[in-house]
């Protein structure tokens, strides 16, 4: 049986898919987005985090059976409220076999995969194929910029996005709008261009960036060094999407920040 490291299992995540959902946040991410709001989700191992209330451990190793048992206990509630389970991260595909193992043990539960798309195509296809809906993060289309801001090449991401479009799984593209980085006209037009050509796309969600996680970085002994102006409002321009006939929505409020409300 597989096991893996989970950062947190959180119930009633109102912005991770349809209905009442429970989200499994898998620990570890291959990317290093400069704006990441989940620094405690980056390392694949359990960590100690300092908070105002003292130290606590972030991350715990579970077997797939344990996780499935927790989720199956509430499956009826999730189902009857039009919801299900979302796998998020970090990057859930970093622990793809573990995630597959969990999904395989779930009893009739709607699954959303929330991914950066950065994974091998076979891993990506397997887990996406077991999901009923995919939230696919698309940050930067320009390869150089992507490497600069996330530390990784976006070629596998774009390839997986095309692969997804050829599968029979509906998906939403989510774009974090970081002022002056991902919200530029050129980037939004490029994303709209790609989105307009994809079958199976439900819509594009624009997620305005909000100032956030500085404190958490410090608590983990990491540094947060934004190179953009945090005070500048994000440019949530829907025009390029409307022009490409792509359904688009703009989220209000602190999406990413809210992932980990600081326990005081």
């Amino acid at each position: 049986m597989t096991s893996g490291v989970i950062h947190e299992i959180r119930e009633f995540t109102t912005h991770d898919g349809p209905g009442v959902r429970t989200t499994v946040f898998l620990k570890g991410c291959p990317l290093r987005c400069a704006w990441c709001h989940n620094p405690e989700g980056l390392s694949p191992e359990p960590q100690t985090m300092r908070t105002a209330r003292g130290e606590r451990t972030v991350g715990r190793r579970y077997t797939a059976e344990q996780v499935a048992a927790i989720l199956n206990r509430q499956a009826a509630i999730l189902r009857s409220n039009g919801g299900g389970v979302t796998f998020s991260g970090g990057e859930p595909l970093l622990q793809a076999p573990f995630v597959e193992d969990i999904i395989g043990r779930l009893s009739n539960v709607h699954v959303v995969l929330d991914t950066s798309g950065y994974a091998t195509e076979s891993r990506f296809r397997r887990v996406a194929g077991m999901s009923q809906l995919v939230y696919f993060d698309l940050k930067l289309v320009d390869r150089e910029a992507h490497i600069r801001y996330t530390g990784a090449d976006n070629a596998p991401i774009l390839a997986n996005l095309r692969a997804l479009s050829s599968m029979d799984v509906p998906f939403v593209i989510r774009v974090p709008l970081v002022p002056g980085v991902t919200d530029t006209g050129a980037n939004l037009r490029a994303i709209a261009g790609i989105a307009g050509s994809l079958a199976g796309l439900v819509r594009v969600d624009l997620l305005p960036y909000h100032r956030a996680a500085g404190g958490k970085y410090a608590g983990l002994g990491m540094e947060f060094l934004p190179s953009w102006n945090e005070a500048q409002p994000a440019n949530a321009d829907v025009e390029p999407f409307l022009a490409a006939a792509v359904p688009v929505s703009v989220a209000s409020g602190d999406i990413r920040l809210a992932r980990e409300p600081e326990r005081i």
Binding site: E8, R10, E11
Partner: peptide
């Protein structure tokens, strides 16, 4: 206590 959320609490 580290709690997963409202569902487990209601249960």
């Amino acid at each position: 206590a580290a709690i997963r959320g409202p569902i487990g609490v209601l249960q």
